[in-house]
Each structure stands twice: as structure tokens, then as C-alpha cells.
Design a protein around this nucleic acid. Structure first.
Lengths: 113, 113
DNA sequence: GGCATATTCAACCATTTGGTTGACGGTTTG
DNA sequence: CAAACCGTCAACCAAATGGTTGAATATGCC
């Protein structure tokens, strides 16, 4: 599961991590403060933050003994593009897109209904 | 991890499943035809399709001995709304979407995990 | 009826995931 | 210096994930 989009979606698939991202929408936070509202251990939150950082969804910068977590919404861009292409494809030029698929891409197996 | 958005994101976190969704953009497909481009077993693809169906991303209808798979893009709406809460991605970048599908779709063997 | 096709089920396996606890290394403060 | 604080590391655990194989269940065709 090494491609970038997979890593981002996997990071978003956990409600704890999505909540953390929502918290960071308001402001940068220290690891301890991120962990405070949750019932789980600090180490568990630290792992979640590591996963979010690996996905590029946050960056972490240590100042003094405090490590600050900052939301990086640009990391959502590719995944968001992927989703919107599907989720709202009736609002874009689907015919043109299907022509593109037929001409530019190698077609998968034949599947006449 | 039982909430709906988590299940959708988890379903999208696998490149095989995203490729299947891309294939279904073009047309409904039978399970066997979905499986054909992949190097894994039919049973594995059947499981992936089950996960996509559980997430609501596809529906499956059996006609005769063939089970047809149909894309259900509406299932992406909640997850997409969640992402848009992070702003700046409210416009569809179709060119970027097409480039994405191209890298994800061709050649099919490249994204078998 | 009998055989081929389409798909799933069941059991199994290796790896990953999400959590815990306790020890540990930096950093600040008294 | 010593004590308190911030955060991670290491080892462990249960459960989930993604894959395999072989048997089983439907359905269609001759």
C-alpha cells in the first residue's frame, strides 16, 4: 500500500485521526494538547500523529520541548481530486471524460452486458 | 471503526479497489470481467467487491448466473463533504483527475499490490 | 441428466493496525 | 544539580486485512 493516495485515504479512515485534523483546522497544537480530549494514551496519539505526518497531512516542528503539529491541507489535494471525479461526475462533462478513457487508456477486459 | 465515513475511506485506501471503481466508471461489469486484469485470484476480487459494496460504493445485481457490479458514486458524498471542510478544493480539476486515472489505470498490472 | 461457467464460502496464513505499558532521552525550571 | 515535563521507543497483544486454496452452490447449455 505504498502509493501516496492510498496512504492518505488510509490515514483518513480512522475517526481519531479525522478528529485530530479537525482540531488542527482551528490552530496549531502541541502533541500533549492534541491528546488531551482523547481517552487513549499519549503514545497512541503520538502514533496517530506519525501516521498523519507520513501521509503529509500534518507537519511537526519541535520548539523547545514542545512539538507543534500543523495542518497541511494541500496533502488532501490528490485524494480530493480523485474523489470529486467520481462523486460529482454527473456535474462535469462525463461524455468527454468517457471519450478520454476510451481513446487514451488501454481498455480493460471486454464486458458486453 | 464502524462509522460510515471511515468505512468509505478504508475502502478507498486500497489501490486495487480504486482501480475497480475506475473500471466501473466506464460501464457496469461482471465479477469475472472485473477480476480479469488483475493477477490475484477471483476470490480475492470477490472480497474486494464485497468491501466496496459494504461501503455503498457499488451495488451488485445478479442476473442469471452473472453478478453485475454498478458504481454508486453517491456513496462518496459524505466523505467528499468531509474533505471539502478543509477548503480550497471546492472546484473540480478535471485535467488533474484525468492524469490521475491515467497513472492509476495504465497499465493495470502496475497497481496490483 | 450432465457438464461447464460464475461466484461465493471456509479454512488458513502472513502482515498490518491500533492499542497498551514501561523505560528512555531532551528540555525547562526550581 | 535535580525534578518535572514533553514526547518517542520498544516490546507486546488482539483484532483486522489481504491474500491463498479447495470445496460448495447456482445457473445456463447440450
Amino acid at each position: 500500500m505504498s502509493d501516496k493516495v492510498s496512504i492518505v485515504f488510509a490515514a483518513l479512515a480512522d475517526p481519531t485521526r479525522r478528529t485530530i485534523l479537525s482540531m488542527l483546522l482551528e490552530d496549531d497544537m502541541a502533541v500533549t494538547d492534541v491528546a488531551h480530549p482523547f481517552q487513549m494514551s499519549l503514545a497512541a496519539i503520538s502514533k496517530h500523529l506519525g501516521i498523519l505526518a507520513t501521509a503529509g497531512l500534518i507537519t511537526q516542528e519541535k520548539r523547545g520541548r514542545v512539538k507543534w503539529c500543523k495542518l497541511e491541507p494541500d496533502a488532501l489535494r490528490e485524494a480530493s481530486i480523485w474523489m470529486q471525479g467520481f462523486g460529482q461526475f454527473d456535474r462535469i462533462d462525463l461524455d468527454a471524460f468517457e471519450r478520454f478513457l476510451e481513446t487514451e487508456l488501454s481498455p480493460p477486459a471486454d464486458h458486453t452486458p
